Amino acid sequence: MGKRKKEVIFLGVVVITLLAMLGIQQRQMKQYTEVLGRNVENTSNTAAAASGSAAGAKRQPVVYLTFDDGPSSLTEKYLDILKKHKIHATFFLIGQQVEEMPEIVERELKEGHEIGVHTYTHESCEIYASCQAYYEDVNKVREVLEKRFDYKPQLWRFPWGSANCYIHSYKEEIIQRLGEQNMEYADWNVSAEDSVGSPTVDSILRNVKKDAFRVKDPVVLMHDSGSNQATLDSLEAVITLFEEQGYRFETMSQRENCCHFGQ
C-alpha cells in the first residue's frame, strides 16, 4: 500500500473517531441538559408544593360566640340572626329556664348550636354553698337535658367564671368530679361586658374589639337574657366585625383546647 493511501486511511480513521467522540459528547450534553431540566422542574415543583403547604398551614382564624343565662324572651331573635349568617354558637343555659321554655332549647339543638350547663338557678348563695351543692346543681341541669332532649352536654360554665371567689376552696375537686362525667368547664378570653352597668351597642362593640384580635381563637362572652336588648342590637355588628377579618364561627367543643382563664 502506498504511503499516500496509508495517510488517507489514517486521516479517515481519525475523522471517524473524532466524529464518534463528538456524537458521544453531544448525547451526553443532551442527557445532562435533560437531567438538569428535570432537576430544575422538580425543584420548582417542590418549592411550589412547599409554598402551597405553607399557605395551607396558615389556617383560617376561628371565633367562638357564647351566650350565658338563656333561654330567654330574646333567644329566638338571637337564633334568627345566627341562622341568617349561617353561624353556630354555644349557649350556656339555666336549668329553670330550660324547663320553662323547652321549645327554644329544641330549636337551638335543631339548628346545630351547642348547649352547655350554666347551673340550675344562678343563685350564688345556693349553687356555691359547697362543692356538693354545686355538683348537684350542675347535674340537675344535665339530667334535664338528657331526659328531655336526649342531649348530653360536654361543657359547663361557672357563673362569674372559674376565677370567682366562691369556689376557691373546692375548685379543683369540682373540676375533677365533673371531669369524671366527661364534662369540662369553659371560660372566655373576650368579654362584651354586656351584663355590667348600662351597656350600649357602642360599649359592647368597643369591649369586643379591645381583646378580640390580640388572642388566638377568641371565645366571646355575651348574655342572652330578657334584659340584654343591647346585646341583641349589637350582635350583627359583632358578627360583621369578625367576618370582615376572615374569621369563621364554630362551637366550643370544636375548639382545640377548651378556654380556661390564664391559658
Rank of each mutant, 00 (worst) to 15 (best):
V63I: 04
L155W: 08
K209W: 01
A129G: 06
T66Y: 00
D202A: 15
T66C: 00
S130T: 10
A230E: 06
S203C: 10
G197V: 11
Q28L: 15
S195V: 03
G37T: 15
T33C: 11
Y120R: 08
A48C: 04
Q26K: 13
R214V: 06
V35G: 11
E250M: 03
T43D: 12
K86C: 02
E126I: 09
T17A: 14
Q132Y: 10
D233F: 01
N164I: 11
D194M: 03
Q60L: 01
I239G: 02
Y135K: 04
A20S: 15
N45L: 10
Q263S: 10
N257M: 12
V62A: 04
R248I: 13
K3H: 07
R248W: 00
L36E: 15
H260W: 11
S195I: 07
Q229A: 10
M29T: 15
Y170A: 12
M29S: 14
P153T: 14
D211M: 09
V40L: 14
R248D: 03
I16S: 12
N228R: 10
G246R: 04
V105A: 01
D224T: 01
K30P: 09
R248K: 12
M29L: 15
L205M: 13
E136I: 03
N42V: 10
Q31V: 14
Q181T: 10
I127M: 11
H118V: 05
T46G: 07
G116I: 05
I174T: 08
W156E: 10
G37L: 12
S195R: 03
Q263A: 14
E106C: 01
N189K: 00
G112M: 04
S198K: 14
V220I: 11
M252N: 08
A212H: 00
E111Y: 05
E34C: 07
E250L: 07
E236Q: 02
Y120G: 07
D150A: 13
G56Q: 04
F92R: 06
T17D: 10
S225N: 08
D217C: 04
Y166W: 15
S53H: 05
S130K: 14
E244A: 05
T33Y: 13
E126Q: 13
E146C: 09
V190S: 02
L178R: 13
V63C: 05
K77V: 00
I104S: 02
F67W: 01
M29E: 15
L205W: 06
L205C: 07
E76T: 03
E100M: 05
T75W: 00
P159Q: 05
D137L: 08
D80E: 06
Y166C: 08
F149R: 10
V138F: 05
L241I: 00
K110R: 06
